[in-house]
Design a protein around this nucleic acid. Sequence first.
DNA 1: AATGTTATAATGTATGTACATAATAATAAG
DNA 2: CTTATTATTATGTACATACATTATAACATT
Lengths: 243, 243
Amino acid sequence: MRKYSIDHKSPVPLHAQAETLLRQLIQEEDYRNGKVLPNEVELAKKLAISRTTLRQSINKLVFEGLLVRKKRSGTRVAQNVVSSKSNNWLSFSQEMKLRGIPIKNFELHVTWVTPDEELAAFFEIKPDRKVLKLERVRGRPDEPFVYFVSYFHPRVGLTGEEDFKRPLYEMLEQEHSIIATLSKEEISAVAADDNIADKLRLPAGSPLLFRKRYVFDPGERAIEYNLGYYKASSFVYTVESTR
Amino acid sequence: MRKYSIDHKSPVPLHAQAETLLRQLIQEEDYRNGKVLPNEVELAKKLAISRTTLRQSINKLVFEGLLVRKKRSGTRVAQNVVSSKSNNWLSFSQEMKLRGIPIKNFELHVTWVTPDEELAAFFEIKPDRKVLKLERVRGRPDEPFVYFVSYFHPRVGLTGEEDFKRPLYEMLEQEHSIIATLSKEEISAVAADDNIADKLRLPAGSPLLFRKRYVFDPGERAIEYNLGYYKASSFVYTVESTR
DNA sequence: AATGTTATAATGTATGTACATAATAATAAG
DNA sequence: CTTATTATTATGTACATACATTATAACATT
């Protein structure tokens, strides 16, 4: 009974498979607590891939600061990672829960739209292919403070009939076997236009924290494109970094 | 006459040499402007290292978001707007240098001020103790895009006579033996008031990306409190995260 | 002139191999 | 019993090689 294994016939690259597999592996308690991973040569043999390929995957996680390598003693999960990287990856609802803020959905619209140029390029699909658009206004029970717009790649297989009140990534993982691993975010500021000002109950022109989020799966394939407009007066983005 | 080359007898690994070399290379104006780099096979030959080794170096820069690769068309310098990456702890000037953006100091004021309540609390000093305040307006030669306000803890030992045109953290490290290690950041958005609007040559009310930065030394003692007001139209904050 | 087809030139994926280096463990010497 | 010495074992560096994939360019076809 092999718990983790690699499919050589799958179209997803071996190093990407190895990466997901490592990510799962290091969730295990033993490794979390500092147990050394199986050594490269052995693990490569066990997975039936070359050491070079395996190394590619490990390298990535090392880059990300998730793993630490040490000669002779081996590779293990990085302890005391205080970086934004690991902290940062939280869904909105998890994030709010963590801060003890009850959330309310003020609006929730699901539509099918044709992507604009930027989106079609990011998703690498033809511009006539329809994508699912999810709009949400969320916030405290008494005060909406964020307007989200999400676009999902067709490969996710959403119908639009799903229960979008559930935590999104949980739903994707459980019902659609989509594992979102990497996200690039761009944070900037914009002024609220009439539409958003209305949704967030603000004067038009108010400053908003604007966050674009690009979400990928372990094979670096695009999953979601997310735009978030946060009411600046009630939202702060926190990052911790070390050098 | 080879402008860049690699020393095979040096003790520093070839891939590391290649990396520094690439960093220099992409400073060149042509590459900055989107010219494709020499292709991997050729470049490897020219540097007399294997493609695998060269790729190792390129990979790193790609991961950092400095280079973008595209099949068939080649590798080029990422054309993003001025952006800041949370994880590699870099000073503003280093960051800009890395991206080949020449910076200009538009204004530079040094004053001694009495801290307000928040600052006195953060520095853990009595409110009558004066602290050094450094104000700077910086940006591209033709366009200021950030207004910084920094407060330094008395323990740093600044006199106010220092050369603040030098990279700050370099100066602190060399002349004052201050090593800044950890920084907590809070990012939000604000509207430009008249004062800042003037400094950044913007209409008042324009949205600004606002970053508070708390800088500590290895002993978690407060070193600096920094406020940054970034022109939103020319500055994006980038975060990469994995779960 | 628009469309379809084929070549080609770049990156992408993957393997096998070899030796270097460093930290630890085992052993020998004093 | 402490200190050198040596072996072992993990990662680190580096190469040569092969074929896959894909965006573009060149060409041919309608």
